[in-house]
Design a protein around this nucleic acid. Structure first.
Length: 273
DNA sequence: CCGGACGCCTGTCGGC
DNA sequence: TGCCGACAGGCGTCCG
């Protein structure tokens, strides 16, 4: 489900309800998510003030003086902000954070590909080590990608989705950015010019920014913590549009669908080379 | 090291 | 109406 814009949308919605509050308790109903929830996490964070709610890559980082909670939404993770009277949890509501003002942050995740992890104060969790730059990091540039892609025979799209290359780009936004930059997603990374890669960097930033401004993309089940969908789906140029005309002005091509790295991919057969 | 395949889960949707 | 396979926004791990 969520790529960077959806995670950022969730972060922005949760922050006003959480930062400055204290965690009264954490209620775990099931701990077998993508990774087991560390058993010590509830006791460590209980009674702690929430100093900040940050985002790194697709992780939400809940900061306290007693350590950091790392939250990944996987494919189907959602948060809901509940105010008293709080409804009883349903099947896939795996954990609640109860705050000092009785607000409840409820985490729901039917597929359980998400995660809730814990890092001691001052310690970088292994899951964060090795991540690439944020898309707006000045180090993320055409020069950087050109160097990184030297000798790489893999198609560019799966590499763009590799979180060691740049973080936050998933299947939807990779397709959109490559379309915007006029690059065929099947093209071997080593064979894309620095100029094209520079254009791709700009396209990644632009598409992510626009999606954040629209509250993310809702294809089926993404909702923000207030239960509202994102509105970027109507702005998608290629994703999910197989057989439809390319929306690039003057192109006249047709959007095609194929498989790349086990993922559905969409691109314009004419304007992406 | 690299590239590709697999598996983790549940829900939904389209076709028969 | 019911069943069954395909597919879904992620990503760690394994294999050649």
């Amino acid at each position: 489900m969520p790529e960077l814009p959806e995670v950022e949308t969730v972060r922005r919605a949760l922050a006003p309800h959480t930062v400055g509050r204290t965690i009264r308790r954490l209620l775990l109903r099931r701990s077998d998510l993508r990774f087991p929830i560390p058993p010590e996490l509830p006791e460590r964070l209980q009674g702690q003030a929430i100093l900040a709610l940050d985002r790194r890559a697709k992780y939400l980082l809940l900061e306290t003086a007693a350590g950091q909670a790392l939250i990944h939404l996987g494919m189907s993770g959602q948060f809901h902000i509940l105010k008293p009277p709080v409804a009883p949890p349903t099947t896939h509501d795996h954990w609640d954070a109860v705050l000092d003002d009785h607000t409840v942050l409820r985490y729901r995740d039917p597929r359980r590909f998400g995660a809730l992890l814990y890092a001691e104060p001052g310690v970088t969790h292994p899951m964060l080590a090795g991540l690439g730059p944020e898309p707006w990091d000045p180090h993320f540039s055409g020069v950087y990608l050109r160097q990184l892609f030297n000798g790489r025979r893999a198609p560019i799209k799966p590499l763009l989705m590799d979180q060691r290359v740049v973080v936050g780009v998933g299947n939807i936004y990779a397709a959109e950015a490559l379309h915007d930059a006029g690059i065929d997603p099947r093209r071997r990374a080593a064979r894309v010019s620095e100029q094209r890669l520079e254009r791709l960097v700009g396209a990644v930033r632009a598409v992510l920014e626009r999606a954040i401004n629209d509250g993310g993309t809702t294809l089926r089940d993404f909702v923000n913590p207030s239960g509202e969908p994102g509105y970027f789906a109507t702005a998608l140029k290629v994703y999910g549009r197989a057989g439809a005309p390319c929306l690039k002005p003057g192109c006249g091509g047709t959007v095609v669908k194929g498989q790349l790295g086990q993922r559905s991919s969409y691109w314009c057969a004419r304007c992406q080379r």
